[in-house]
């Protein structure tokens, strides 16, 4: 029996299970670093950053935009596990499975690597991209063996007149109790290929105390994306995200960017009360949840909304799980978490 469902009315992106990515300062900086590495001829770049800062979102955003790319680049994503034995077979099988390829029993490591190489060649055929960026999440799990596999893949692609560019995402705080590093210092050929440049990905920077301009303050730029972007339902008749949820206030000139000062104060107060340094980058995960709560749950549910007050901002910050995330980055967690 066929199940028929009436066509659903369009849902605002903020109300969907997967909320939209916005372009932020850290993403722009990561794009610039990748562009430089590509331009130099590097075969890879490690991106270091703390968990929930938005590294993966950032790279996905780079993949969807071509404006930062010095030449056309195809993107492939791979999530790496933690094998007991880092064989060629495991490496290539992970790569192929991420791409939805069927596993073939009895395949040797070399055969699977060739298959992975052919896959990349085929998927970049139609748009003729010569550079192929392979994004590897959890590269902090790499040992020297995986680096050898990257070298193999790089060599295979080079022989087929393609250029591999490995974006290795390192999670600084992946291990319990501290940072992890690869077993040994990589040999020169690995460093020369993939590690001659590194990029530190951060959360949203606050900039100077009075900086509310887009250049100096990532947070302001990010708020502005909600004020001016996320047009719904469409580009011609739609309105930005802030206008959608706070219609009257927006018509009276209200913008999220106008309250950056208040939000900063609230964040600083909360951090100080929890024995944390007053200023720290705003992790993307917390920021995105913070904005969601402010717009959807507060402004969106209050028809008389004019602007946010301190209590509302604090409530949104706590709802976003900001303080728990920030406390987890420090070795000693105070017993009296202030909420």
């Amino acid at each position: 029996m066929a199940i028929w469902a009436p066509p659903a009315p369009p849902i605002h992106p903020m109300l969907r299970p997967r909320r939209p990515i916005i372009v932020t300062g850290p993403i722009n900086r990561m794009g610039a670093a990748c562009a430089t590495a590509l331009e130099r001829g590097d075969r890879g770049i490690p991106i270091h950053g703390n968990g929930r800062d938005g590294k993966t979102w950032g790279v996905e955003c780079l993949a969807m935009n071509a404006s930062w790319q010095p030449f056309p680049v195809a993107f492939f994503f791979m999530d790496y596990g933690k094998p007991e034995k880092a064989t060629e077979n495991y490496f290539s099988a992970t790569f192929l499975e991420t791409a939805g390829m069927r596993t073939i029993r009895h395949a040797t490591g070399a055969e699977s690597m060739m298959r992975a190489c052919n896959l990349l060649m085929e998927r970049t055929r139609d748009l003729c991209q010569e550079a192929i960026a392979v994004v590897i999440n959890e590269a902090n799990r790499f040992t020297s063996f995986e680096h050898d596999h990257l070298v193999t893949l790089d060599n295979l692609l080079e022989r087929r007149k393609k250029r591999a560019f490995f974006i290795l995402i390192y999670q600084n705080d992946a291990e319990w109790g501290g940072q992890q590093a690869i077993d040994h210092r990589p040999p020169t050929q690995v460093t020369g290929r993939f590690y001659s440049m590194a990029h530190q990905f951060t959360g949203l920077l606050w900039g100077n105390a009075n900086a509310i301009d887009f250049q100096g303050c990532d947070v302001t730029m990010a708020f502005n994306e909600y004020d001016e972007g996320v047009i719904f339902p469409d580009d011609e008749t739609g309105v930005p995200c802030t206008a959608y949820f706070a219609r009257n206030a927006y018509m009276n000139g209200y913008r999220l960017t106008s309250q950056v000062g208040l939000f900063r104060e609230v964040v600083e107060d909360l951090r100080v009360k929890n024995h944390l340094p007053a200023i720290a980058p705003f992790p993307m995960q917390s920021f995105e949840r913070f904005v969601y709560f402010l717009l959807v749950r507060i402004a969106g549910e209050d028809p008389n909304f004019r602007q946010f007050n301190r209590e509302q901002a604090l409530k949104a910050l706590l709802w976003a799980g900001y303080i728990e995330l920030e406390l987890s980055k420090h070795a000693v967690v105070p017993d009296d978490t202030h909420r």
Partner: peptide, 22 residues
């Protein structure tokens, strides 16, 4: 750069073998 809808980048169109898009 502007906001763009979030999509899964590694969408390979359902073919489960290399070269199987006929």
């Amino acid at each position: 750069m502007r906001w763009c809808p979030m999509t899964h980048i590694a969408d390979f169109g359902g073919a489960r073998f290399v070269g199987a898009d006929f």
